[in-house]
Design a protein around this nucleic acid. Structure first.
Lengths: 275, 275
DNA sequence: CTAATAGTGTCTATTAGACAGTATGTT
DNA sequence: AACATACTGTCTAATAGACACTATTAG
């Protein structure tokens, strides 16, 4: 028979938290940025790509495979504090844009034991990184390609290694925008991280349209051409100049600085204007 | 010194999962529906409200306070399976619309021990419930009111009990749509559930604009007036008839059935039309 | 001069907002 | 007849898409 308590204090003094079987929690962080690939033609501007930071596992499970930076949630650590701590460790930078993405909790996602993982998206301008990444971390350029029938092809490339995977998106209900993801092919990414990365890319594509999060990936001063390229690479399509400028007009302010040196008309540098 | 392993199998055989301190996970479910309040005037249509299912706690902590239905995640249970199981238990209905909302993980959100909770939104048409709710559960009508300066006032009422709380929304960064919530007043809701409820309402308000999730709260046949009222009560504002009908035109199909009996022109019944 | 990007003007198409009007059942 | 809701027509305002044009620099 259960004991009857007369106050919350009494109950808590007696409480045995071991009666439920506990589990481990981790966090995975999608650190997104933008990279520029130099082009041989002196007139042309650098080609921009989305990029993501991965780390190479030096331990089992998935030893020597690449995965998202992450780690365990401390028992005395706020859920949001863990990704902050890990981000600081990996990048040596504070004040990085961070938002919770999704919590993944299939029973067998980790071969060691039951682990539930809350993923986060971080956005950063690479110029803020003063080149002291932790030593098994590396930036991978993202190539994202959606085939007709809800099959998504993603390729990550850091110059040495190419990782590619393919995921099928299955609409869960007619009424919503939520998909179930099914991994069709995955060479070399650890855990269920292909799913996490795809979720993150989709979130980014969505939110770039109705928030100002892009500016977390931009340097303080930028040209509108550069900004437009970042939009285009994230959305995966070309935008028309006048329409683009109308839309971002009230988000940026023109400065007196200019960018010269390309073999073409110089452009004004703009800056993010918060409301 | 750490032991060196030569294969994943060997590593896993040896793996001691107890070296990290584990924690408990729960799920909280926001079960939303729509209720109609009868009006004395025979001509007028019933006034619709959003409603949410709460349960009364019969144990410490927060004994006798109301809270969201929820429970612990089983060690061998997929994260998504837990809310499904609890939903079935509380409502006796299968196939309810369910989507993950957010994972709350402040260190002290539960006085017993460290508990991280993943919240879910469920949407249901009350007509599907054949009146066998679990016996300490009750529907509360929601009144939602946003004061000028990001202070939100929410009142829940089930006819006997009125619960009200007040939350301040603080924009986290200039660039995003994410808020931190701060509870300014909370009489009688257990845990951090005021935050969970507010997050859920905001998600609902957002998604009703670009998905078809409303139809999960509607009966199979409905009039456009009823549908419009549901939109209005969720969005918290009046809509213009012609605009509303244009927007939902391709989401519904007219049937030959009609609704008569109000002291006014009868209306056609419509049905959700999936694409 | 040329290639390449910067930046603007303007027309058109589409969508959203507003208002006024007609239609029809119950009491 | 009167009230309340159903439903539609149409004008206007705002926004998005498309194209064409001018501007300016390094080589």
């Amino acid at each position: 028979m259960e004991k009857v308590y007369n106050s919350e204090e009494e109950f808590l003094r007696d409480y045995d938290s071991s009666k439920f079987e506990k589990l481990s929690m981790t966090t995975d962080i999608l650190i997104f940025s933008v990279s520029s690939e130099e082009v041989d033609n002196y007139r042309k501007t650098d080609k921009k790509k989305m990029s993501i930071l991965l780390v190479k596992r030096d331990n089992y499970p998935f030893k020597d495979k690449w995965c998202l930076p992450g780690g365990f949630i401390g028992i005395d650590e706020d859920l949001d504090a863990a990704p902050k701590r890990i981000l600081k460790k990996e990048t040596n930078v504070d004040n990085i844009y961070l938002e919770q993405l999704y919590t993944f909790g299939s029973v067998n996602r980790d071969p060691r034991m039951r682990v539930v993982s809350t993923s986060y998206i971080a956005l950063i301008d690479k110029n803020r990184l003063t080149n002291n990444l932790s030593n098994n971390a590396s930036w991978f350029d993202i190539t994202f390609y959606e085939e007709k029938d809800n099959i998504v092809d993603i390729t990550l490339d850091n110059g040495n290694t190419t990782i590619s995977f393919k995921i099928e998106k299955i609409l869960r209900e007619q009424t919503t925008d939520r998909y179930s993801f099914k991994i069709l092919k995955n060479d070399s990414l650890a855990f269920d991280h292909p799913l996490v990365i795809l979720s993150g890319i989709e979130r980014l594509k969505n939110k770039i349209e109705y928030t100002d999060i892009v500016f977390n990936m931009m340097p303080e001063y930028f040209t509108l051409g550069e900004l437009q390229q970042v939009y285009e690479v994230i959305l995966g399509k070309k935008l028309l100049d006048p329409a683009f400028r109308r839309i971002i007009a009230n988000k940026v302010e023109k400065t007196t600085k200019m960018k010269t040196g390309g073999g073409h008309r110089p452009s004004y540098l703009f800056r993010y204007k918060s409301k």
